[in-house]
Amino acid sequence: MENSIWINVLAFLTSYFAMEGVAWATHKYVMHGFLWTLHESHHQPRHGVFERNDFFFLFYATIAMVLMYFGWEQLDFRFWMGLGVTAYGFTYFMLHDVFIHRRGKWLDKLDNSYFRAMRKAHKVHHKKMGKEDGEEFGLLLFNKRHWRVNQD
């Protein structure tokens, strides 16, 4: 295989997995910080299909589109980084919005110890309704204490 193919695969995988750290930091320091006014809607009962918190996807979508735009002509690493950000965003939507918050019924039968632990960690995050003293800001990575065998 050509060397650039491996660079593109590495760019995609690195950006995908790095997004967990970016999402964690954004959630902890931006959403539970100076942009709490947007994120607060996510910690309250939802009325309707959308909430103000849904606007955060625009930030990540813009990053992905800019990377893909500048990498499009040669399909270089920037394009694949943008695709990695997009793939993480799709993962986040499916697991956070559809699976955890049940904004759709597509993943209702998804059940194993990892996904039960993910739900438990997110429940712990939502236990605090305010912006202070939160915990469990990630999606794919969370504290191992949630991996107990007999979870509720």
Rank of each mutant, 00 (worst) to 15 (best):
K109E: 14
K123R: 14
H96N: 14
G134V: 00
W72I: 06
F55G: 09
T91K: 05
F142V: 08
H146K: 08
T86D: 11
Y69F: 15
K127E: 15
L67I: 07
M81S: 14
R116T: 04
L110K: 02
L139H: 07
D133S: 11
E136C: 12
F93P: 03
G89H: 09
R119W: 05
D76A: 11
R116H: 06
R148N: 10
D111I: 02
L67M: 13
I100S: 07
L107V: 01
F93A: 12
V124R: 15
K105H: 14
F99N: 09
L141T: 07
L139I: 15
V66Q: 12
F137R: 10
W106D: 02
E136N: 08
A87T: 15
W106P: 00
L140F: 07
Y114T: 03
M118D: 01
R145K: 15
I100M: 11
G84E: 07
G138K: 07
A64N: 10
V85T: 15
G104A: 15
A117R: 10
W72M: 03
Q74F: 02
K123E: 11
M65W: 07
W106H: 13
R116I: 05
S113L: 13
H126Q: 13
L141P: 00
F99C: 03
F55D: 10
G84H: 06
M81I: 02
H101V: 11
F79C: 02
F99Q: 08
Y114V: 06
L141G: 08
G71T: 07
F55K: 09
R116E: 14
H96F: 13
R116C: 05
R148S: 13
D111R: 09
A61P: 00
A61C: 09
A64H: 11
L140I: 12
F142C: 06
D76Y: 01
S113A: 08
L141R: 11
G84P: 01
H125A: 14
R116W: 01
F77I: 03
F115H: 05
G104D: 10
E73R: 14
E132R: 03
R103G: 11
R145Y: 02
F70W: 10
E73Q: 14
F57H: 01
G138F: 03
E136K: 04
K128Q: 15
M94L: 14
Y88L: 14
F57T: 09
D133Q: 06
G130C: 14
V66D: 09
A61E: 12
L107F: 07
M68R: 04
L139Y: 06
F137L: 12
M68A: 05
A61T: 12
L58P: 00
E136V: 00
W147T: 07
W72L: 14
F137T: 04
K127C: 00
A121N: 05
R119L: 09
V85G: 09
F137N: 03
L58A: 13
M68H: 04
F93N: 02
R119P: 00
W72A: 13
M65Q: 10
H146P: 01
M65S: 06
L58Y: 13
K105N: 15
R148H: 12
K109R: 03
L67V: 10
F90L: 15
